[in-house]
């Protein structure tokens, strides 16, 4: 199973990747929104984890793009420091499958990925 992680803070990106690889997933890491959009098209991941505040494209835009494309069945988890109600609602409206606010626990993330991976 292939998971794409988009996050601009290197430590965060490395930690998430490490945690998910421990669970036996294949992880693709990208550091900005544009690269994320490119890699999603190219690599066809089975699950996407994205930050919101990234260079070039916001995570919400990525959610909107994925859910409006042929990959709409790919689950997307939004992982962001923005916990404002309107942002969370917007993310779900755009089709996000889960929303985790930072500070987050990598273990919790791993559990949520597992749950979504089952349905995917």
């Amino acid at each position: 199973m292939k998971i794409l992680v988009a996050e601009d803070e290197p430590i965060m990106l490395k930690t998430i990747a490490l945690r998910l690889r421990k669970d036996g997933y294949d992880v693709i890491t990208v550091a900005d929104g544009r690269e994320a959009i490119e890699q999603i098209e190219e690599q066809n991941p089975d699950l996407i984890i994205t930050d919101i505040m990234m260079p070039y494209s916001s995570g919400l835009e990525i959610v909107g793009k994925v859910k409006a494309s042929g990959q709409r069945n790919v689950p997307v988890i939004v992982l962001s420091a923005m916990g404002q109600e309107n942002v969370v609602v917007e993310a779900f409206n755009l089709g996000a499958d889960d929303y985790i606010t930072k500070p987050f626990s990598p273990n919790e993330l791993s559990m949520r990925v597992k749950r979504l991976a089952k349905t995917a």
């Binding site: 505040m53 420091a81 923005m82 916990g83 404002q84 109600e85």
Partner: peptide
Amino acid sequence: YSIMAVSE
């Protein structure tokens, strides 16, 4: 400054 982005 990120508090400016994440605060309600």
